[in-house]
Amino acid sequence: MELVCPAGTPAALRAAVEAGAHSVYCGFADETNARNFPGLNFSRPELAEGVAFAHRHGAKVLVAINTFPRAGDEAIWHRAVADAEKAGVDAVILADIGLLAHAAKHHPKLRRNLSVQAAAANADVINFYAREFGVSRVVLPRVLTVAEIAAINRETEVETEVFVFGGLCVMAEGRCSLSSYATGQSPNMNGVCSPASEVEYVQEGAQLAARLGNFTIHRVGASEPAPYPTLCKGCFTSGDETGHIFEDAVSLNATELLPQLKKAGVTALKIEGRQRSRSYVAQVVRSFRAAVDALEAGRPMPTSALAALSEGQASTTGAYAKTWR
């Protein structure tokens, strides 16, 4: 199976390739991608250099242009697709139907993958994207069970890519407005979920409070792991009850499910974390490359030692092994 790895910077791209990534995904340093964080992402020359480096080492580069174009500013997104093709990327990862139509019409030779931001979660909609826009691969949302993924693969020729490690978005991606509600900035339009400019960590006595906009997302004691300040992982009090409404502060780790995902017909395995360091990228990619190689060779899955890199320092197999919706 193909291992698709994150790169928020050129250094992380090199780290991913050297650690054994088959493909690396990245984005431009603007609102055209869903990880538009300070100090991250690629300029046009950096992307061209990254593509050349990856290709020299036999790896592919996929560029995420997976936010939804703002009315009147579509040219920014059109230019991103054109510049990605010019840089020699192996595919673009798109979510917006209009942008898919634009890419199919004006860049027909550029491979088009469907982003998780499109929230395509059944075979009918995936086949629609393939028929209308020539989509070659779909990144499945993180809300499906392994059985559901197998059912999708039985009914489509489109390659499927699933998340196997990292931050766990539990929402219908591309449609979640929680962060927009709290901050006025949208993950889907501006490319920032819980934008850093709206995040503040405040020491309140022995507790560390994380605030997003005007909301306190959680408070943790001195000896507790600190989570990300995302609303979907927030810990809230209502009446006499305090708890996580949507999901605990945990990360996805599906290492143990790789054999089942392969059996379900999955083509590619995706590691989340373009906002993370080259150290994270190197460690996680190396671990998953060992797992993928073991799987291909028929050996047992190696034990993962990635807990320290996980939010909440805890892992889950997410929806793959349970039904959530």
Partner: peptide, 8 residues
């Protein structure tokens, strides 16, 4: 990793 140091 900076985030890992933050979590811990």
């Amino acid at each position: 990793d900076g985030d890992a140091l933050f979590f811990s």
